[in-house]
Amino acid sequence: MPVWLIRLIVVFAAFGLLEIACRSGWIDAYTMPPPSLMLVYAWQVLASGRMTEDILLTLQNVGAAFVFAVVIGFLVGVLLHRWPRLRRAVDPLLASYYAVPVFIFYPLFIVIFGLNNWPLIAIGFLFAVVAMVINTLNGFDRVPRVFFKTARVQGFSRPAEVWFITLPAAAPYLFTGVKLCVAYAFIGVVAGEFILAGAGLGYEIAFAYNNFDNRTMYGLMVFLLVFVTVVNMALHVWERKLHARRSRGG
């Protein structure tokens, strides 16, 4: 039996058990409806169209945070790589960055930017950017030295060396950074919407929760989790392919 089939069976079995636990009343229906019903709720909420605007808004904010994080994270990574002394100095900060709950700065952003999309984008950006910095550094560190020697022997110019050697050799690691940026931008933006926002998926879930509207809450929650999982897994599979090709190519 192939591994993916077993995996599928395991996932389905987990949901099946949850379904049984809910249907048999072991988890009461108010706390959690059975997963099959959650899917129905998700479909109803999406089909009604009343959440389309919120979904698009969240996606737009995640997208903006993602783009800023990738571009700025990459540039900072390049800067730190070129300037080892600065890198050594900020290294402890980078290493402990994710131990600091970035959300605590969210209220500051609201005061600085006002209650609009920018605080959310800023929080998603802050959450994602360091992953890009770390992976950019990691990628550049792992370009084998012999590549540069070959480039020098071949008389490559500096831009040609960066374009034909450094970037392609570091690409799989850069992609890992990009992948993490997607996941972290989502986490940051949705968390910000939970804490304080007037629209968006996280806001609507929190709103439904506060109004005991379990149908909307579970429907949106399932939609969000399935959507994020599909995006992340697609990126994960792609990343594995890139890394496999690199290790084969040497």
Partner: peptide, 11 residues
């Protein structure tokens, strides 16, 4: 690992 687990807080 990569889902926004904050979504689960009502649950």
């Amino acid at each position: 690992y990569s889902i926004p687990k904050i979504t689960l807080y009502p649950v």
